[in-house]
Amino acid sequence: MEALGIRDDYSDGTAASQNTLQLIAFSIDEQIYGVEITTVREIRAWNGATPLPNTREYVRGVINLRGTIVPIFDLRARFGDGKTNPTKNHVVVVMSVGDKWIGILVDAVSDILTVSKDDIHTVPEGNSVDTELLNGIVTHDGRMVGLIDLAAVVSGAKTDA
């Protein structure tokens, strides 16, 4: 990953105090979701992807990220709400999950949020999709932000296979 010229020490510059999290917030339909800013490697406009055969619906295909092949997950489809019909205005958020890099397709990136860890609520039991894919829920400016469990987004692709 070093070859991509992106350093892993983001937290040095943006380190929030021990008890806060910085999130990249993005939206799907009207709902806001967030991922920890330290996992985000790049945000780019949707520019198509080469579809992968014989894989699950929410894997939109693969893109070339400076010489490396990176899979793109359609988060809307992953939530079971049908495939996104992407335009140039849609956004791919490239993140590192474990030792892999993935992209997720979202409608728009809205903001960088700083939230307190104490404000994170657990996801109410009930819908298995919610509890599987969200790490928690946090309130920011009176709006609910779902914290995406990236590992679940990716590994789900495997267990479903």
Binding site: L52, P53, N54, T55, V59, V62, G67, T68, I69, V70, P71, K100, W101, I102, A157, K158, A161
Partner: peptide, 14 residues
């Protein structure tokens, strides 16, 4: 040749 498995997984037939 680039690996698909580096960031994803093996795809049948590919």
């Amino acid at each position: 040749i680039k690996s698909l498995e580096e960031n994803f997984e093996r795809i049948d037939g590919i």
